[in-house]
Design a protein around this nucleic acid. Structure first.
Lengths: 354, 354
DNA sequence: CGTTTTATTTTAAACGTTTAAGTAGCCCTG
DNA sequence: CAGGGCTACTTAAACGTTTAAAATAAAACG
């Protein structure tokens, strides 16, 4: 453990007013001030008012470090982003979830800190970092839940909520991926499509659930799944999706509709269609997933499934805070959040064709 | 100040191993352990090794709160997002800047905390919050720099770096907006355009600089600016831009090229062009600003100006850390970061027309 | 008016660090 | 051999809180 530079004590930092300052000015003990400010009952109304007034006048604010040291609570939540593609905050789904998580957490009085793996230039695991910073809880939102780092946190003793992945004994918030895909399949088959291709995202719990939903819905609708049209691609990767789309469309037998891994990737798919001299939805229909803002600014507007990121983030924060503040809260809750199909104009109605 | 619930001391939290534990096990004083682990010179190699080994075996990690309490340094940086449109993290430019800021800050050993306005359910200003959390520095990145909250921080005694806005006596990282617009104007006029319209973004320092660049470049190129074609719109607002674009195109005299406030808004503009039965770039050319990922997935690919978000975020972090660690660092530095024109296919070459 | 109860305040210890100052022990050196 | 200068430690105080326990004052009771 190398030294951190602590030579200049305080340095430019202004001296904050402390409980002691107030106690001196008002002629009471520090303990009384603390209790008055924290609303304990064993302090008279008169002194409480005097102290509150003084605190306000002197611009007092508690020192979070000292408080945390004593109480072992920091009012801080850690955010763990595995960020494998380096997209991190740029990923609209995560950014939106995080945004509403943040809003809800703030309303409950918590701050958000990103948990990284080196602090003060020394390496530590994510879990160690959480311990170091003493976060009261952690939210895990990432694409790859199979890393050592994730396991450590999951097996640790800090309250945890995961997004879109279920661990035994941990609370999870799940976007309803099966239902989303099923609704899309229902919609598309309702429009008369039978030749449906599906480009999956990266291998992950989410991808599995979506595929399961896809197969189930096709089954129910009596649609045969052509194994050649079930491709494994990447999330958030327009280039890859571009290639796969071209591949799908270059065969002699063409699907009439393609499910893209997500809206962002779909843009690659759309380019591929166009580059092959075909049109959407005239020659081939396309559906996305996510319901990101851009998808509705395209022409044709993309038919997609809007994930309720606000509800997901909010639920995550609520659950996490609840785990922290009422330790008896059950650990294993799984909360499913439904989304909503957005009917764009990227799926042709084959029923009207003849 | 209402009470925070501190009833259960520690609660589920695991007890961390402390310097005391190590000192007991190794039969030395706490001070020696501290100094050994912090690399002070007045401890023998033998004991240092013994202590380091013990620390590792026992899974010791320093307690950041205790350390901060003593040293007045938290290794924590505050992020201030004014977030007026509520877009927050969803804003690609900010998300990208923040992402690289985060990466660089982490490399320097700092964590990132979002500064909000209520902690433990009590309201406080952003500045008060910074004091409460004792952040070592703050980065301000927002659209509106004229709020009370911003002023308070700027006038405070915490190291600050601002993004895209200059205050006296504070370090600022500026995306080179004049140059960006000038290059775009040069490019567009080079393609033979003389009838150029400009939809501005929200009133702000950035908008002013861009407009200045626009006017200057037009002047230099001998282009007359038609006041009717200088509209004030909003950043990040496709709907507004849609309306303004329609307005521009419905006059008898049409511009041959339109500068959009930003790429995201541009998508609204593109829709407007299309909805009027016109084509890009056949009937009217369009340029954006920002160089977001989506802009290059459109067809035609958008001609735009890529802001170097990585360099901006990195520079911000570097400067902030430098301000913190070397107090003698000059306060008033302004760092300008150039971007790069991206030639898409949304601007017609009028020179070839005849 | 002594005694118990209740309301209010203070004392003191603790949380886990850092660090100035003090204390040995030891080796030099004039 | 007194004194100075190292080296390798230890002591003790401090950072700003919280809180159990003790102390005091005030009130109530029989």
């Amino acid at each position: 453990m190398r030294s951190i530079s602590t030579s200049r004590k305080g340095g430019r930092k202004h001296q904050m007013v402390s409980l002691k300052d107030i106690s001196v000015r008002c002629g009471v003990s520090v303990a009384t001030v603390s209790k008055a400010l924290n609303g304990h009952k064993d302090v008279s109304e008169a002194t409480r008012e005097k102290l509150l007034k003084a605190a306000k006048e002197m611009g007092y604010f508690p020192n979070s470090q000292a408080r945390a040291l004593k109480t072992n609570r920091t009012l801080n939540l850690g955010v763990m982003f595995s960020d494998e593609a380096g997209s991190g905050l740029t990923h609209e789904f995560f950014a939106k979830v995080l945004n509403s998580f943040k809003t809800e957490a703030e309303a409950a009085g918590y701050d958000i800190t990103f948990i990284n793996k080196n602090v003060g230039r020394q390496k530590m695991s994510t879990y160690e970092h959480c311990k170091y910073r003493n976060v009261d809880g952690v939210i895990i939102a990432c694409t790859d839940f199979t890393t050592q780092d994730v396991f450590e946190v999951i097996n640790g003793d800090i309250p945890v909520v995961t997004i879109d992945h279920i661990f035994d004994c941990r609370t999870a918030i799940m976007s309803n991926n099966e239902k989303g895909i099923e609704e899309l399949v229902d919609y598309v088959t309702g429009m008369g499509h039978k030749k449906i291709a599906y480009i999956q995202g990266n291998k992950s719990a989410v991808a599995e659930r979506r595929q399961a939903g896809f197969c189930k819905a096709c089954m129910n609708r009596g649609i045969d799944i052509n194994p050649d049209w079930l491709l494994s691609g990447d999330y958030h990767n327009p280039e890859r999706t571009y290639d796969l789309t071209k591949k799908l469309l270059s065969g002699s037998d063409r699907p009439s509709c393609i499910f893209m891994p997500d809206d962002y990737s779909a843009m690659g798919g759309l380019s591929a269609v166009k580059d092959m001299g075909l049109s959407v939805p005239g020659d081939v229909s396309v559906v996305g997933y996510d319901g990101i803002a851009y998808s509705q600014l395209l022409s044709p507007r993309l038919t997609t499934y809007l994930q309720d990121t606000t509800a997901i983030g909010t639920a995550a924060a609520k659950q996490l805070v609840s785990l922290i503040e009422n330790p008896q809260t059950t650990f294993t809750e799984v909360i499913t959040v439904d989304g909503q199909l957005i009917e764009g104009a990227s799926v042709a109605d084959l029923n009207q064709r003849h």
